[in-house]
Write a protein that binds this DNA or RNA. Structure first.
Length: 479
DNA sequence: GTTAGGG
DNA sequence: CCCTAAC
């Protein structure tokens, strides 16, 4: 049992529950301060509201409730049962707790507001809380069914290892049990809590493989194992909650018994994803989208890394499916942003010097050896890929042919040439085109030779291989 | 990996 | 400038 563990923080060693709780609080706050912080928002609110419902009226209890934001169930159980609440305050470790948990009060206010809106002051708050989830996850739960399950689980929770309980339902049952025990007798609740404690532990160990079938929970399962040994109750519950939340999202009807689980707040999700990113645990789906986002700016330097292929759209979208609607929007936004930026990132105009360089390169190496030309003549300009050189050459041929054509026809269409090249360059291009006809492209030279415009295509395609220089790339490569 | 061809 | 097929 966990109670045997170093009770340095406990002033009343007789209280087994508090021992475990305190013990768990110590490391938990240090290691998973943020996680605990957010995860505990829910239990706290529940506890507080329960406190109101049952009108315990103990000031110290209320105070304690505000301060102690760990495992709702256990905390409550021993509090009521042993009445050792006062001992918590003033303990050395409480300062740390207060620091960490203090920030929770703000968020708790949120939850309190929600409760007020739902008019939870009645004794049926449990049910209202339960109904809250069916509303949000209508496909998962149906109100009455949940309620019945809740009661069953709570009553069954005395027998640990109840295989009927799903993983997600464990904590739920524990919570409910505590609340019921509060209303009936604290001692029983205490015992129940003990049992729950064991139950959760044992069941979590057993259920870990099952959870692995669910995608995001794989990490959680690991957390389970870790926390089972190292971190006591709080962290354990925390991880358990994590699993539950993920299960709730991914799996549906099979895990209906997760009633007490509140939908994680937006802030929690964000924080969680952030933590996951830093800690290397991809517990949240959003992490991916964030990573994608961060990739965008880094691509601006080199064209070489054309990210379009790197970004498979289908994969992107499928990831979005599993996350919430908000993240879905984000995904869409990101995708739009990326596609808009990726396509035609920078249209670098070809300078005259570059054109001349290209022409020289072609004259030197021939048409088709674009990589060679790029390496030798455009090594400095990383943004010019061999494909770019080829495209440019293609365009040059076209324009030069147009030039020729225009001249032939009386220079009527000169204005169509957006960036007219110097005559010398055009002449060179034409010469090169004659010597190195672009494969399958309509060589201006040939086209001029061939008076019949309709037969240009055929003539060129046939003429290219015939060319004595063998400038056709394919033929060249074969050499 | 490179190139041709089309968009 | 980008994409894809072909090599």
């Amino acid at each position: 049992m966990r109670t045997e563990r170093k009770p340095h923080l406990i002033k009343k060693p007789a209280d087994a529950k508090r021992q475990s709780v305190d013990e768990s609080l110590g490391p938990g706050l240090k290691d998973e301060a943020t996680e605990v912080e957010h995860l505990l928002v829910e239990p706290k609110s529940e506890r507080v509201s329960v406190d109101r419902v049952f009108c315990f009226g103990k000031e110290n209890i209320e105070k304690h409730l505000k301060m102690e934001d760990f495992s709702c169930a256990f905390d409550y159980g021993w509090k009521i049962g042993s009445g050792g609440l006062d001992s918590i305050h003033g303990q050395g470790g409480d300062d740390l707790k207060l620091e960490v948990l203090d920030g929770l009060l703000d968020e708790v206010d949120e939850v309190d507001d929600i409760q007020a809106a739902h008019d939870l002051s009645s004794a049926c708050e449990d049910f209202l809380l339960d109904i809250e989830f069916p509303e949000k996850f209508s496909e998962l739960d149906c109100g009455p069914h949940v309620g019945s399950n809740l009661r069953n689980s709570s009553s069954e929770s005395h027998s640990p290892g109840g295989s009927s309980n799903s993983v997600g339902g464990m904590s739920e049952s524990s919570i409910v049990t505590v609340q019921e025990s509060n209303s009936k007798n604290g001692v029983l609740g205490k015992m129940v809590n003990c049992d729950i404690h064991h139950t959760i532990r044992s069941e979590c160990g057993c259920q870990a493989p099952v959870m692995e079938t669910i995608r995001p929970s794989k990490e959680h399962a690991q957390d389970f194992v870790e926390s089972d040994d190292e971190k006591p109750l709080v962290s354990f519950i925390v991880s358990n909650k994590k699993v539950k939340s993920s299960i709730k999202v991914t799996k549906g009807g099979t895990l209906l018994r997760q009633k007490r689980l509140r939908k994680p707040t937006k802030r929690y999700i964000e924080e969680f994803s952030r933590n996951s990113t830093t800690s290397g645990k991809n517990k949240c789906l959003k992490v991916r989208s964030q990573e994608e986002f961060s990739q965008v700016p880094s691509e601006s330097q080199s064209r070489r890394g054309r990210p379009k292929k790197i970004m498979p759209k289908m994969e992107f979208e499928s990831d979005c499916e599993l996350s919430a609607s908000e993240s879905e929007d984000e995904c869409k936004r990101t995708k739009r942003f990326k596609t808009a930026c990726d396509r035609r990132k920078h249209q670098r105009m070809w300078t005259l010097a570059e054109v001349i360089k290209l022409v020289d390169g072609i004259a030197q190496y021939g048409v088709g050896r674009w990589t060679d030309i790029k390496k030798l003549l455009f090594a400095s300009s990383a943004y010019r890929t061999p494909v770019d050189l080829r495209d440019k050459w293609r365009n040059l041929l076209r324009s030069s042919s147009a030039h020729k054509h225009n001249r032939k026809e009386g220079e009527t269409n000169v204005k169509h040439c957006v960036r007219p090249l110097p005559k010398t360059v055009v002449c060179r291009i034409r010469e090169l085109a004659t010597i190195h006809p672009y494969p399958k492209a309509r060589s201006p030279n040939l086209s001029s030779i061939n008076s019949d415009p309709s037969s240009k295509q055929l003539t060129t395609t046939k003429a290219a291989p015939i060319n004595t220089h063998g400038r056709n790339l394919r033929g060249k490569k074969c050499n």
